[in-house]
Amino acid sequence: MNESAMRLHDAALVERLYRSLYRIRRVEEDIARRYPGNDIKSPVHLSIGQEAIAVGVCEALAPDDVVFGTYRGHAMYLAKGGDLDRMIAELFGRVDGCARGKGGSMHLVDVARGVMGTSAVVATTIPNAVGYAYAMKLRREPRIVVSFFGDGATEEGVFYESINFAALKRVPVLFVCENNGWAIHTHQRQRQATLDICGRVRAFGMDAQRIEDGDVFDIHGTVAAAAARMRAGDSGPLFIECMTSRWREHVGPGEDFELGFRSREDEARWIEDDAVAKLAALIPERQRAAVDAAVHAEIENAFTRAAASPFPDADELHRHVFHER
């Protein structure tokens, strides 16, 4: 997006998007930096490089809209307003964690903020999102659900079952495919007979569009328009494929270029086109410094509070297997 187009966006939106992008990046970089220490008790699947999708989508949602996601869910959780203190405490395995230390990084949840949960099994939350949207439609609520998943999920049978049912019942769910090209170390070309995910979705009678460059304004604008259509009543479900890049390894704090299955050059255009840096450049220096300082303080606080939170007592082991009223 060029400079003149940028000016069309109001300054408040630019700051909001930047703040969310920078906050997620710094949280995850801090997680990666501290990972070799012994505080984080959970495998982490970092979203670094992919933040523009979660931020562009969630900034276009209302607070009472809900999202379902995946084990690579830090960005979605934070972008939707999930509590940072409780997220870090969860990674530390502490009782103040969002899942009381029983879910870890792959099962972040904040129901009050509409973060309905994430799964460690690919494609598993897609039908959950559809069912939630069915409930909204049944109750005539003007809310929507967003289902986040990766390109690998579109190979699972439940994906096709889910989009068929969503289209059949015209429920207000927005499917957001975060296509980073890789299922762990295997490229989409080695997994899918054709790469045209949107084409496959359109065969179900659903509008689908692909955003090629990961531009956060494009994503935000596209989702805002889609959300308005769905809220208005009867657009039915919609599908957006966002191309992106995973800069880090599938799981863990490091990079994976040394494994040889891909090179830094393969991802170079994405790294050079970093959304965080691009938005930082759009904000006056003093204003940006204030945002950054506030983010740094919030993150430092979150890690400090997590470290001060106790581990769950032994009696917590048997709690919550069933619902406690």
Binding site: I126, G131, E161, S162
Partner: peptide
């Protein structure tokens, strides 16, 4: 539809929404 997997997942989503 003949989609036991997704319909079970949808049922879970409905339950999460209070149904």
């Amino acid at each position: 539809p003949l989609s036991e997997d997704a319909m079970t997942g949808a049922a879970i989503g409905m339950a999460l929404a209070g149904l």
